[in-house]
Amino acid sequence: MSPLKRVTYFVGLPILLIVLWYALSFGSTNFFVPKPIELAQTLWTTWIGDRFFDDVLPSLGRLAVGLFFAIALGIVLGLLIGSTRWLRNLLEPLLEFFRAIPPPVLVPLLMLLIGVNDSMKVAVIISGAIWPVLLNTVEGVRAVDSVLNDSCRSYGIAGFARIRYFVLPAVTPQIMAGVRQSLSIGLILMVISEMFASSSGLGFTIVQFQRNFAIPEMWSGIVVLGLIGLGLAIIFQFVERRVLHWYHGLKEITHDS
């Protein structure tokens, strides 16, 4: 696809929807219905300035730290659990149990344990975002190719070298699939963790607007969240294309033949 065509595909539907939205909300006097132009103005005046530094950046910082630890811990623990049979058998029921607990219910508990601070919010993000990466990694390690495994063994590639050159790259497709899910879970939990006993952050500010009937501002906060999600997706795609170029190439070839 040519770059121009790609851009058209990328922005085509959003533009169409905005136009539709503009037409449908034109002349509406409903206080709760946002209008595109007003919303864009509110977006600008509300979020560019102090709020960006006081609310958006701290939120993004906690999200980044939370996601980093969720992904790193997920991969390390996943490799460990996946490559040790007894550990896997021992932990699997437990992991399924913890995974099934919706992380928002942990917020009050973590508040008591850690206190109302950044660490608590980061812990909430980790507690939810770690699962897709962890479980995918465990599953991926379990399913590594037996012939490749034999190749490694016959050439004496063991221990750390085996992880680095064989297991980790082999599991990367599953890890990336897990990361994709973790990103959106992380974003949700970033907002939720700020809705309880917080005094700053995106989640806090949006709830604050809502309670004060600052409806256009509230809408603009939701748009900011959407934009952050979009940004994460773009970064993810960029990284994924680079890390997994071999995987996509291999798949294309196997589909052709």
């Binding site: 190719d145 037996s146 012939v147 490749l148 034999d150 190749s151 016959s154 050439y155 004496g156 590639i157 070298a161 050159y165 064989f166 790259p169 082999a170 990367t172 071999w246 995987y247 291999l250």
Partner: peptide, 29 residues
Amino acid sequence: MAVVFQEYGRSLFPWMTVRANVELPLKNQ
């Protein structure tokens, strides 16, 4: 001892170039 398997498609590392594949056992040694 070295082993060459029947399933060539599954005995080479798809994430490594040809050269890196040949080099890996030596690097490991």
